[in-house]
Design a binder for these strands. Structure first.
Lengths: 222, 222
DNA sequence: TAGATTGTTAATCGATTAACAATC
DNA sequence: TAGATTGTTAATCGATTAACAATC
């Protein structure tokens, strides 16, 4: 019955969905009604069969000879990723990076809404950054529960990252988006996704040095 | 003769090296002289054989029964990644994110030095951000060549990303670290590494929704 | 020596790519 | 119809894991 959800879905496929989404939106802006996987594949330099497999995880069905309806595809991908109705998130660490993320308008596109920022610095608490209040981190657990916020974004210093994660866990948060290079430890039922700039830079510099690297992924266009 | 450099090195291995590096530095701070792969593997939740394979790409040799010398391992990894002597980089787009990156002290650890920022906004040009001058982007190509800068960091708006890439290419830049969600097109000999927040968030939210996801990678700790 | 660990070779696993039948 | 495209099954490829001999 549920051919896709039973077997599990490859993480690489999930990570490519936003790529398709972005491209499809440019097509929609250009008033394209339908699109074939070969067209998507050409534009994104991905194998057409892989594109078909990736799109299949959303449950979309195409029409032979025609392709997929652009609007339907966009809807299906957003629905699959849960980006159709935005999730509220708390940000911990109102420094430079935190401020940048609070000001990043692109989050609306990807279903995330940073509703408040937290810090320990008395100089920051009470101020507003990009129209969001900065609160003391001690207030986070209670507010997270009362506001049903399930996602935490960590932009503290490396030193404070684990403390931030602990506070978020105390607030019953279920997912942590960690922008610090510090690995954080959380209970099994909390999901952690790390944005690891060092890994990304390692991929860049090793290729820059002309080393022969195998298995280039989608984040590497030449 | 060169057992590793002939066959090419897996990109996943390269992306894990910074993870090891960070852990090894905590060991060095604790005055640990030697370390075994089993110890590293336990701490980082990675298979010990995989750790050995990853470390092997740097050319390090360990001693059976003993392990690896911590300091030597750190040196070898930094040398392999080219992080032992920092590379100069230009940043294009002095907005919120650009400002955050200019203020990020962690780059010293990973061999990157942002030496100047560029923008088109007259209000910004001539100012200083975190002690780096903001110059008009028109001056970039000439300066890049004269200063032998080979790395460009793009933190512009989506709209301006391709223009930024073009200017960097005109300056003879060889690698672009793209922080915008826009895919940029560059000549074959220029390396592009994308920091794709949407992909990262997709991995987070799909796991948050309790979907069965295969192939969790290192960026996903639970 | 005994035993922990390295380094390597073989097996497994999953993702990607190729082939092709079904469809409109 | 002819032919482009989907959707699926099989083949390939590479990364990870397991097994194990070599080493000190």
């Amino acid at each position: 019955m549920c051919p896709n959800s039973l077997r599990g879905i490859p993480l690489p496929s999930i990570k490519r969905l936003p790529l398709y989404l972005r491209f499809l939106k440019t097509l929609r802006n250009a008033d394209r009604e339908v699109v074939s996987t070969t067209h998507i594949a050409d534009a994104l330099h991905i194998d057409p069969t892989l594109v078909r497999k990736d799109l299949a995880v959303t449950g979309i069905v195409g029409r032979p000879r025609i392709g997929y309806r652009v609007c339907e595809l966009i809807e299906k991908i957003e629905e699959f990723l849960g980006w159709n109705n935005a999730s509220d998130a708390f940000l911990v660490g109102a420094g430079h990076l935190g401020t940048a993320l609070l000001g990043f308008e692109g989050f609306a596109e990807i279903g995330l809404r940073l509703v408040a920022a937290f810090d320990v610095d008395p100089a920051k608490i009470g101020s507003r950054i990009h129209d969001r209040e900065v609160l003391h981190v001690d207030r986070l657990p209670d507010l997270a529960r009362r506001m049903h916020v399930h996602i935490g974004v960590v932009t503290t210093s490396v030193r404070a990252a684990q403390d931030a994660a602990d506070v978020l866990v105390r607030g019953g948060i279920r997912a942590i988006w960690n922008f610090t290079p510090a690995p954080v430890t959380v209970p099994d039922d909390v999901v952690v996704e790390n944005v690891d700039l060092a890994s990304s830079l390692a991929a860049l510099t090793s290729r820059l040095k002309g080393l022969p690297v195998l298995g280039g992924d989608q984040s590497s266009v030449e």
